[in-house]
C-alpha cells in the first residue's frame, strides 16, 4: 500500500458516499445517470468475486463490501425508492454499446483465460467507460448540480491517483499491469474535459453539448 493508492481509495470512497448521501438527503436523483450506476454495480460485482475465494486483508475486504453495498443501494434509490425523480428522458446512453464491446475485448485481451480473470478484465475495461452515460446526461441537460460535480471530481481523481500508484509500484516493486494501466489512462482522459470545466467554472459546470 502506498500513499497514492490510499488517497485514491479514499477519494473513490468519498465519491460513492457523496452520491449516496446526495440522493438520500435530497430524496432526488435528478441529474444522476442511473445507467452509470448500474455499470458501476456491475464493475464491482465482476471485480470483487474474489471476496468468496481469497482473503487479502481486512482493509481490502471491508472496502470491497462497502463499495458493492453502496453501489447497489444507489441503484436501488434511483430505480426504486426515488424512481419518480429519475431523469429517464435524458439518461438515454445505450449501455449495451459499452457492455458488448468491453465483454468481447475482455475475452481477447487478458492475462489468463480463466473465468475469474476474464471477469476481472471485463470489470477493468468497463470501469474505464462506465462514467460515459453520466457525462452524456450532463451534456444533454447542459448543467450539473454542484454536489454532482464534486462527486465526479472525486471519482475522476481516484483513478488518476491510481496511475501514480502504478508508477510508484513499478519503480519500487517492479509491479506492472498493462491492462489496468491502459484502462486507467483511458478512464482518466475521459474526465479531463470535466476536470477543466470543474476547475475553471468553479460552481456551475455546464458541459457544452
Amino acid at each position: 500500500m502506498n500513499i497514492f493508492r490510499l488517497a485514491g481509495d479514499l477519494s473513490h470512497l468519498a465519491a460513492i458516499i457523496i452520491l449516496l448521501l446526495k440522493i438520500w438527503k435530497t430524496r432526488s436523483c435528478a441529474g444522476i445517470s442511473g445507467k452509470s450506476q448500474i455499470l458501476f454495480a456491475l464493475v464491482f460485482t465482476t471485480r470483487y468475486l474474489d471476496l468468496l475465494t481469497s482473503f487479502i486483508s481486512l482493509y481490502n475486504t471491508c472496502m470491497k463490501i462497502i463499495y458493492i453495498g453502496c453501489a447497489y443501494a444507489t441503484v436501488h434509490l434511483i430505480y426504486m425508492k426515488f424512481k419518480a425523480t429519475y431523469d429517464g428522458n435524458h439518461d438515454t446512453f445505450r449501455i449495451e454499446f459499452l457492455i458488448v464491446p468491453v465483454g468481447g475485448l475482455s475475452f481477447l485481451v487478458n492475462h489468463d483465460f480463466s473465468p475469474l480473470e476474464i471477469l476481472w478484465t471485463f470489470s477493468i475495461y468497463l470501469e474505464s467507460v462506465a462514467i460515459l452515460p453520466q457525462l452524456f446526461l450532463i451534456s444533454k441537460t447542459g448543467e450539473a448540480e454542484t454536489i454532482t460535480t464534486h462527486y465526479l471530481f472525486c471519482l475522476g481523481v481516484y483513478r488518476a491517483l491510481y496511475l501514480f500508484n502504478w508508477i510508484w509500484r513499478f519503480y519500487f516493486e517492479g509491479f506492472f499491469d498493462m491492462i489496468a494501466i491502459v484502462a486507467g489512462v483511458v478512464q482518466t482522459i475521459l474526465y479531463c474535459d470535466f476536470f477543466y470545466l470543474y476547475v475553471t467554472k468553479g460552481e456551475k459546470v455546464a458541459i457544452p453539448s
Partner: peptide
C-alpha cells in the same frame, strides 16, 4: 512478473 502479485488493489 504479475502472477506473483495477488490482485491486492481495489
Amino acid at each position: 512478473e504479475l502472477d506473483d502479485f495477488e490482485k491486492d488493489e481495489l
